[in-house]
């Protein structure tokens, strides 16, 4: 095992543990905070893998914005009280499905790519930039459209309910 392996195992363990906690914790806001740790850990994994641009974007967009929104929604829905998990039987079935996914995915991937040591040699930031605005420019532009559509849709969905409610009063 190289030092990179050790580093990855450490960060990966934190990530996995935080992920597990974020889906099992019964206090909703703690679940959200564990998600922060899990996604931050994921950014760390990217960093260890040498994909620093992805790691920083993950940190900036996911942790800095997306999860904040999630926490925000948790606060706004005032959902501290009440059950947050399904019945225990349901949870067992869900656990089985989750384990199945892990086993299936892990088995397939490891079987396909093996344990052999390989060189880490990802593209540089410049190369990524050039590719985004070269090969991938149309998907990229399409993404901007998607974001716009999401923005409009979010505003539309959020305000429609509001208006209906006001209309009733």
């Amino acid at each position: 095992m190289t030092s990179r392996d050790v580093l990855f195992v450490a960060v990966g363990l934190i990530t996995a543990a935080a992920a597990v906690l974020s889906v099992t914790n019964r206090r909703v806001l703690h679940a959200g905070l564990w998600l922060v740790v899990a996604l931050g850990g994921l950014a760390g994994c990217y960093l260890v893998l040498g994909a620093e641009l992805v790691a920083l974007v993950q940190l900036l967009v996911y942790v800095g914005a997306v999860v904040v929104l999630v926490l925000f929604a948790l606060m706004l829905t005032r959902s501290g009280a009440g059950e947050v998990d399904t019945s225990s039987a349901h949870r067992w079935v869900a656990g089985a499905v989750g384990a199945g996914v892990t086993v299936l995915l892990g088995g397939t991937l490891v079987a396909a790519y093996g344990w052999s040591e390989r060189e880490v040699a990802g593209p540089s930031n410049d190369a990524i930039g050039e590719q985004i605005f070269g090969t991938w420019v149309w998907p990229f532009e399409l993404l901007s459209l998607l974001l716009l559509a999401a923005l409009v849709a979010a505003v539309a969905v959020a305000t429609t309910g509001h208006r209906r409610q006001e209309g009733e009063r």
Partner: peptide
């Protein structure tokens, strides 16, 4: 670090969790 601008922006954006927490 190579992408230090992004790094600084990304890291400072985490600070918000302190306030939220």
């Amino acid at each position: 670090v190579p992408a230090s601008l992004l790094f600084v922006l990304a890291v400072t954006s985490v600070g918000i969790f302190g306030t939220l927490m």
